[in-house]
Amino acid sequence: MFGDLIDHLDFSAQGAAGTVHMGGELVAAKDEEVEVTIRFRSPETNNYEYPFDSGNPTYTKPTVNHVDLIVGDVTGKAQAGTPAYDADTNPSTKVLARFTKDDWTVDEAGYNVITYRVTATHSQYLRLRGTNLGIDVANETADGEPLPDEKIDFADNANRFNAINARNYNDLWFYSNPVFVTVAD
């Protein structure tokens, strides 16, 4: 079964032109204040059970340690044959804000709620990333960034797959689709 770090996510941005949700585009005036709202909920129960009673640890319900609000510039379509066209990443992408449980409230429906304001200075996208891991967890994260998983190489397939599943369950992440904020000319 999946780790189920969260079972619900709402992510929106609101400005003078209205409110848009993940995948939407908010048109804003230059230097307009945009309010970002993040609502997420963790499931009530632990959906992971280790398949064998072999002295392995008991897993508890995962909880979100932190949520990152990530921003990157939107500059238009890159032309074929240019370095920008062949780039695998957007060099302007960065973590704009990091939120922990001290930064969110719980609403009457049991959702964790974060509100944050950004100033629309130029066209950008906003997206989310959240995890149950801390900022600096040995072999897992460095400065909040995920590290590659170490290879698990057991000869016995059942034990190998169980070890992979246990590792994955303890290293949970969620990602959102972006909200685009387009600054009008």
Rank of each mutant, 00 (worst) to 15 (best):
T121I: 11
T100F: 03
W104L: 11
E150V: 05
D102Q: 14
T131I: 13
P83R: 12
D153G: 02
A80P: 05
D136Q: 09
D156H: 12
D136Y: 05
G81P: 00
F99M: 03
A120Y: 08
L128Q: 08
K101N: 10
A142L: 15
V113N: 07
T82M: 03
T93N: 02
E145N: 08
T115H: 05
D86M: 11
L126F: 14
V113K: 14
G144V: 05
N139R: 14
K151Q: 13
N132W: 08
E108V: 10
A120C: 09
I135Q: 13
R98E: 12
H122Y: 09
T115P: 03
D88K: 13
L128F: 08
L128D: 02
A84P: 01
L96H: 08
T119N: 12
T100I: 09
T141S: 07
T141G: 04
E145V: 13
L147H: 10
T141F: 03
L96I: 06
T100Y: 04
K151M: 06
D143A: 12
P91L: 01
E150C: 00
P148V: 01
E108A: 15
G134P: 11
Y125L: 15
P148Q: 12
F154C: 02
D143S: 12
T119F: 07
P148N: 07
Y125W: 12
V118D: 03
A87C: 01
E140K: 15
D143R: 12
E145K: 14
A80G: 03
Q124R: 13
Y116M: 11
T115N: 11
